[in-house]
Amino acid sequence: MMQVIANGIVAGAGYALFALGFGLVHSTGRFFHMAHGGSYVVGAYLTYVLVSKVGLSSLVGGCGGVLGGAVLGAMMEIAVFRPLRRRNASREGMFLAALGLMVCIQNGVSLVFGDQPVVLRTASVEPGMLFLGARITNVQVCIVATCIAAAASAWIGLQKTNLGMRIRAVASSHELATVYGLRPEAILLLVMVCASALGSLAGILSGFDTDLTPSMGFYAQLMGVAASIVGGIGSVRGSLLGGFMVGLVQHLGVWKLPTQWQEAIVFALVAVCLCIRARGFLRTNWGTKD
């Protein structure tokens, strides 16, 4: 039982980390960043190349991957999202463009690396540490720790710093922010870079935990969106809550049911949340943060 809960928490941490970046972009940029999974998969593969082919250590390779993912995010912002925003694109338009980007990135990875899985494992496969009756590996501890650390830094950054205040201002209203002398476009770029860094971090950790395939980004995207919807998009608290809820539902849900319904349960949950939210749609604040 403890093992099931531990599994759920680890999975949830991964989803939460993804949802964190996703939510950041949503509240400032006002759209569903369906290509967030792109940073996830590119970061992971870049780390793979750096560690396995170039021979760098996991830490350095990981940093390289994070950097790569962040750069990709910046490129997406500058080449696609910013111009679309300038042309007054609608939310659906941005959604579709992001979806298109995701398709391109995933297939690009597939072209370069092929569809078969690659491994980013550096140590031998050993039983994990025993903790309160559950076994968890070092990488898994890392995932949970990173998630908490990222969430904490994000929260502190947004609430306590000047920059954070500016970001929240932009999230609240682009127009007003401009009036007050802030430059929304620069802020949005910064947010995108940070969010993509988080996204690729999630991908890299997942790569160490299991393995890498081109479709890992898409899967993470599905779960990340689920986590955001369930927990509430756009707040740090929401991302954490959503992520852990999805992780736990996924694992506890199949405690008694056949495991093949793992994913279906999550999506059913997402659908239900959306429908419930729809009722209170007009009353909820979608744009502002904590």
Binding site: Q3, V4, N7, V10, A11, S206, D209, T210, D211, T213, S215, M216, Y219, Q250, H251, V254, W255, P258, T259, Q260, Q262, E263
Partner: peptide, 16 residues
């Protein structure tokens, strides 16, 4: 028990 193609986290199955 079953799992999906492309799945990476099999811990639920292992709990079973």
């Amino acid at each position: 028990e079953t799992f999906q193609q492309g799945q990476t986290d099999f811990r639920a199955q292992l709990s079973k």
